[in-house]
């Protein structure tokens, strides 16, 4: 760059934006993105299937671990004497070993314990489909809007930021424009789209209230997020069997708070 060119670019604005760009490109893009976000929120709400109801056996299976956790949590200062504690603890341990709490009943003798296949369980399938549907609703409108901007407004410069920025922002603010010399303060249409895409969440939260479905940075819903791992259904049989060791350990630590309560009371009243 010659000294003269440097002088020119610093003093005289090198570029004028047609006000029509502001009225017919900048505002429409912003407006469309807000509206799409709001619409998407309502579509997601509509698509949300009510949580499927669990049969009794499944609830029981899920809460079996809670039972042992609750019991173990009290063992060091247990409210019940060892006799009752052992009754509950050993009963649980036996039930875990036999698989009484399993949703499908105790596993049969000799049956190969294959890890459950997520595709074979209709309940897990439903959850997966719901996740994919939500993701589609998140992605498709964004792709359409992006295509629309790319098709009609490719290479448009929309606004000039009112503050200087370093060159590092060039790739962020001038996406779609292949000029190496242009001041970083100019923002291209595609970059404006991305700025809106990530920046509008706060606005959605105000419009829709709460942290709602339109939030694109919502990890599971963002088109840029890695597809969330489909929750591997838990193998309760293994979990419960492992829990037996914990139960045994906790039983060893059992101490009833009633053991020396009489001395504590007598001391408190100064009789000992």
């Amino acid at each position: 760059m010659t000294p003269r060119a440097q002088y020119r670019s610093a003093s005289v604005p090198s570029l004028y934006l047609d006000p029509q760009i502001r009225d017919w490109v900048l505002f429409p893009i912003t407006l469309v993105m807000i509206l799409v976000g709001v619409l998407r929120h309502y579509v997601v709400v509509l698509l949300q299937s009510s949580p499927s109801k669990l049969p009794r056996a499944a609830i029981r299976e899920q809460r079996a671990l809670v039972r042992s956790n609750v019991l173990r949590a009290t063992s060091a200062n247990s409210p019940i004497p060892l006799h009752f504690y052992q009754a509950i603890s050993q009963d649980l341990s036996k039930a875990f070993a036999e698989g009484t709490y399993l949703k499908d009943g105790p596993p049969k003798q000799g049956e190969q314990q294959a890890p459950p296949n997520p595709l074979s369980d209709p309940a897990a399938m439903d959850g997966m489909m719901a996740g994919m549907r939500t993701q589609m609703v998140m992605m498709v409108p964004q792709m359409i809007v992006m295509g629309w901007i790319n098709f009609f407004f490719e290479g448009f410069v929309l606004i000039k930021l009112p503050f200087p920025l370093t060159l590092g922002f060039k790739s962020m603010l001038q996406r779609g424009i292949q000029t190496s010399d242009m001041d970083v303060r100019w923002v291209s249409s595609l970059s404006w789209y991305f700025l809106n895409f990530f920046g509008l969440n706060g606005l959605y939260r105000i419009i829709l209230g709460g942290d709602e479905g339109a939030d694109a940075t919502n990890l599971a819903a963002s088109p840029f997020a890695v597809t969330p791992q489909v929750g591997q259904p838990q193998d309760f049989n293994k979990l419960l069997k492992a829990e037996r060791d914990h139960l045994e350990l906790a039983e060893g630590m059992h101490k009833w708070i009633g053991d020396d309560v009489e001395t504590r009371i007598l001391k408190r009243y100064g009789r000992l």
Binding site: P81, H83, F84, E262, T263, R271, L272
Partner: peptide, 16 residues
């Protein structure tokens, strides 16, 4: 039935 040990200092407890 629960094999609970009876509290010590029984007379004192009763007096208290």
């Amino acid at each position: 039935p629960s094999k609970t040990r009876a509290p010590e200092h029984l007379p004192r407890l009763r007096k208290l």
